[in-house]
Design a protein around this nucleic acid. Structure first.
Length: 492
RNA sequence: GGUCCCAUCGUCUAGUGGUCAGGACAACAGGUUUUCAUCCUGUAAACGGGAGUUCGAUUCUCCCUGGGAUCACCA
């Protein structure tokens, strides 16, 4: 049994697409599951599409998700000599030919084919050039490309996910292998590299299925054994088209920015096209490695359903330790405009870890209060705001609540009666606060909500917030007094 | 249009020649409750259609339909 070797081979055109992330993940999982090797190769043979910083970005993102590679990154742009050598070999053996057609000629040809309702395909006019004509063109230093001579026969091959595949050469174009600038196209570079790097399993997106026969013919032309192919189902937009920028975020980093945890992303993306065959669905990266096999990969495309990701992310956030979550929220707070003006502005991760100052202690408690409510990390700053801010700017409409029959008058009554009671209270534990406020409610002879709701709004200025007792307890007497007074003031 | 691929609840999916077609998210209802969230319970929700094989097809075969991918000197 030979060692499994897989690779992820992105082209550096900007960012890492979530579809690419999944492809990388599966290739990684398969390699690691088989105790094999995962290789990173940068397919940068198109100079026109090169984007500054894209390679670094790609590697950073992959590393962020812990998808680390054992070999590479290899750069195709640095291996052009190798491809050229192989292309020449093909030329000599008449398995490829020079094509001197200009793009104008090709355009014209395709136009005519379109007019005659034929599928666009190179008509091989340069294949029939005589030796003399070729020499003349070469002599004139006419630019040319090298095209693969596709055999006009049927090719059957096995795909690890889809089973038996069959294509006919007559339907395929004589692929350009080497461009006129001397650079190889994807098809040549990819095949040569996969062979030279001894890739055993090519795991890539389904969009490559139609060009796979060309690749296999290339392997045959070189007398190489092709690797095993596994074409992954596509990631889809809600309308079932290939996942695209127009219909939402497609860059993996966008999801990081939006506050999705990498563990949740990996778990979610792994299940888009794969499942363990049991009803378990919470998997860490090591667990995925343990369980991943290609035979459980789906054939049909999978819609990238953000709702499920939200839920999964919430689940992962709830399972984080409060300290870990606090650190993540702190990091995000530092990017808000208002955080620097609060008493917590100087907090550091170390402060939180030591938990020695009232500020760090309170911060951890506040985070605990909002933990079950968060869907993404970005919710953190918004939700914790009410605890950190000194002064709230009330939205008076919030004090009204029709279902609980609360209007401004009842709200004022509740607040005015609660304020002295809370002022007299010394023990601000949740239990004690509860006892205190229930007495107020009893005295007023109203429903719980009619007192508790106005207090909560006065303390939070939020429609959704932690419970009243929690708020009173965590905010403390001074803040509670101040906010209740201000609320009464605003309401009257 | 040519070629190829695909097809179970709205979504991600399990599943078998005979199942009450299972789970999760979302939805809805209820419980807990001061709101929201969490947590718990429950309800609704699918085998695209037609032939064939078979005692019996969601499952196997074929056709249709639908969806998608691909057809560059891009990957």
């Amino acid at each position: 049994m030979t060692q499994v070797r897989t690779r992820f081979a992105p082209s550096p055109t900007g960012y890492l697409h979530v579809g690419g992330l999944r492809t990388a993940l599966y290739a990684y999982l398969f390699a690691k599951h088989s105790k094999g090797t995962f290789i990173l190769r940068i397919e940068d043979t198109d100079q026109k599409r090169y984007v500054e910083g894209a390679v670094e970005n790609l590697m950073e993102t992959l590393t962020y998700f812990n998808l680390t590679w054992d070999e590479g990154p290899f750069f195709q742009s640095k291996r052009t000599e190798i491809y050229k050598r192989y292309a020449d070999q093909l030329l000599e053996e008449s398995k490829a030919y020079r094509c001197f057609c200009t793009s104008e000629t090709l355009d014209k040809m395709r136009e005519q084919q379109a007019k005659m309702k034929l599928s666009p395909k190179y008509d091989r006019r340069c294949l029939n050039l005589t030796e003399k004509e070729k020499e003349a063109l070469l002599e004139q230093k006419k630019p040319y490309v090298i095209r693969q001579l596709i055999p006009q026969e049927t090719l059957e091959f096995h795909d690890e996910i889809r089973g038996s595949m069959s294509f006919h050469g007559k339907d395929l174009d004589d692929q350009v292998l080497v461009k006129s600038d001397g650079f190889p196209t994807y098809h040549l570079a990819n095949v040569v590299d996969d062979h030279e790097m001894e890739i055993t399993h090519v795991i890539r997106g389904e969009e490559w299925l139609p060009s796979t026969p060309k690749h296999i013919w290339l392997y045959q032309a070189f007398n190489w054994t092709p690797p095993v192919f596994a074409h992954l189902p596509l990631l889809l937009n809600p309308d079932k088209t290939k996942l695209s920028k127009r219909q939402g975020d497609v860059a993996a980093e966008d999801y990081i920015k939006k506050g999705y945890l990498k563990e949740a992303m990996i778990n979610f993306i792994a299940f888009l096209g794969w499942n363990p065959g049991t009803e378990e669905e919470m998997f860490s990266l090591p667990e995925l490695i343990e369980r991943f096999t290609l035979d459980r990969v789906q054939k049909a495309g999978a819609v990238f359903n953000i709702e499920k990701l939200d839920w999964l992310n919430g689940y992962y956030i709830r399972n984080l330790s409060t300290l870990d979550l606090s650190k993540l929220i702190l990091e995000r707070l530092k990017h808000t405009k208002w955080f620097s003006k609060t008493a917590f502005a100087t907090q550091t991760e170390e402060d939180l870890e030591k938990d020695e100052t009232p500020e760090s202690n309170n911060f951890l408690k506040y985070v605990h209060c909002i933990q079950t409510r968060m869907k993404t990390l970005n919710d953190g700053p918004e939700m914790i705001k009410l605890f950190l801010l000194d002064d709230l700017d009330y939205n008076l409409e919030l004090f009204e609540h029709h279902k609980m029959k609360i209007d401004h008058a009842t709200a004022i009554l509740a607040l005015e009666n609660s304020l002295p009671a809370l002022e007299d209270l010394d023990d601000y534990s949740e239990e004690s606060v509860k006892e205190c406020l229930l007495k107020v409610i009893e005295k007023l002879g109203v429903k719980n909500g009619q007192v508790l709701w106005p207090i909560r709004v006065a303390l939070s200025n939020e429609e959704f917030s932690p419970g009243t007792f929690e708020l009173v307890h965590f905010l403390g007497k001074e803040t509670v007094k101040k906010r209740l007074k201000k609320a009464i003031d605003k309401l009257t």
